[in-house]
Design a protein around this nucleic acid. Structure first.
Length: 420
DNA sequence: TCTGGGGTCCTAGGACCC
DNA sequence: TCTGGGGTCCTAGGACCC
């Protein structure tokens, strides 16, 4: 028997997290900014109604938002990550099979296949009661249709947060109303191609010719089309696979010109990716560094990257910093105003199974013990308590984060206070 | 003049997602 | 003045091998 997918999607997740800990926000328009306070990445319903798009640059909308009394926050991932875990924990108790798809979404297979809507309502109530986070839930025979159902649930308050798209007749009618660019898996480029072909709705996409879709949208697009037809091609992935690449990159608050500044930034990013690498008990075989002046601003642009294969896969921060600095020296050109740099680790493999190289001692036991000690201290006392001198103490490239809320749930000194 | 063909591996680039 | 960051997968093309 074909099973039903449920997609649980938190409503305005970052905004909901902020509102949870500051009740004065509940009636106010709220917007959350990206790193560097550059873009608007989450909006309350009021802000959406103002026509402010996701990803819109903050400086463009700053005045409009202020005029409507919008409360604006820098993103607080410590808080959102922690709240996300709480929501997912509730879902795991409520359903036998759960795929955590993103920080604010999960696909489920429901235990009781007879009354999925009742069950979805129950899950929604429980998440709300135990975590305070509001959600919407869409049901469908495929993930792609469940996505569309969720969108509908969010846009039509009369369905009270749950919409069921498991019945054929409903699907047929609804797909005719969904713009093709709003289908999961159809981005701006594919939308352009489809519109040029006269395909404007999800229903037209569903009925498109397989051969044409495969040719112009690849096998990925064809899977989407099958999913729209009710043929499930994207299974529920319950176990999160180990990461294949780990990246840390940042735009600089102020452009960086000198090599020494870039070196400090890159060392800090290496520190971060190496932490993530060790947290999943892996080692990396390849390291890539990139620097760029793009994409905005006047003047000559320069973008370059350099990739090294390590003599032996490693998760040892000082060694990785050394190689990253060598990469940087290869690509650095003086005279440019660099806006962003990043570090990417690939060739990731489990630390346990690695067969050590006889003559390369990058990861001898002393190094591993040192990393374990550093990670333990930073876990206990907060990230960055112990760090490598190469990452600098001045940080000439600070992120702008001017409107940070407190880390209510993860820092003892920032827990909410209750006054009698 | 006429000079194979198929398989594998790797990488860069492009598309998508939240 | 001011435009995020971290991922995934697929394809095409080149290198290399037999």
């Amino acid at each position: 028997m074909a099973s039903t997918f449920a997609l649980v999607d938190c409503d305005n997740f970052y905004v909901s997290c902020e509102r949870l800990f500051d009740p004065s926000l509940r009636e106010a328009p709220v917007a959350i900014l990206s790193n560097n306070d550059g873009c608007i990445i989450a909006r309350s319903a009021e802000v959406k109604a103002l026509g402010v798009p996701t990803g819109g640059p903050y400086f463009k909308y700053e005045r409009l938002l202020a005029r409507h009394g919008t409360r604006v926050f820098s993103s607080n991932y410590a808080l959102y990550g922690d709240m996300s875990q709480r929501v997912m924990q509730v879902l795991r108790q409520a359903a036998p099979e759960v795929e955590v798809y993103s920080i604010d979404e999960a696909f489920l297979h429901l235990a009781d296949t007879r009354a999925p809507v009742d069950q979805a309502r129950q899950i929604r109530r429980t998440v709300r009661r135990w975590t305070g986070i509001p959600t919407s839930i869409g049901l469908g025979p495929t993930k792609t249709l469940a996505k569309i159902a969720t969108r509908f649930a969010k846009r039509h308050p009369e369905v009270e947060g749950v919409f069921d798209l498991t019945h054929r007749r409903d699907v047929d009618a609804l797909l005719g109303l969904v713009h093709v660019g709003d289908v999961w898996g159809i981005g701006p480029q594919y939308t352009k191609r489809l519109l040029a072909r006269g395909i404007e709705t999800a229903r037209q996409l569903r009925d498109a010719r397989d051969a044409w879709v495969k040719k112009h949208l690849t096998i990925v697009g064809l899977r989407t089309v099958y999913e729209l037809r009710g043929v499930s091609c994207l299974p529920l992935d319950q176990v999160r696979p180990a990461k294949k690449g780990i990246t840390c990159s940042r735009s600089f608050g102020e452009p960086v010109v000198v090599l020494a500044g870039l070196k400090e930034a890159v060392a800090a990013y290496v520190t971060r990716v190496a932490e993530k690498l060790r947290a999943q008990t892996s080692i990396a075989a390849t390291l890539c560094v990139f620097i760029t002046t793009k994409p905005f601003g006047k003047g000559p642009h320069y973008h370059n990257s350099y990739t090294v294969t390590l003599p032996e896969p490693s998760a040892y921060t000082p060694a990785l910093i050394r190689y990253a600095h060598r990469c940087l020296e290869k690509i650095y050109r003086p005279g440019y105003r660099y806006k962003k740099a990043g570090v990417i680790l690939t060739g990731i493999q489990p630390a346990a199974t690695h067969q050590g190289h006889l003559f390369v001692q990058a990861d001898h036991p002393g190094n591993r013990a040192l990393m374990e000690a550093v990670d333990a201290v930073n876990k206990r006392w907060g990230r960055g308590t112990v760090f490598f001198a190469a990452a600098g103490t001045q940080q000439p490239w600070p992120m702008r984060q001017q409107q940070h809320s407190k880390r209510y749930t993860t820092r003892w000194d920032e827990v909410p206070e209750v006054r009698a």
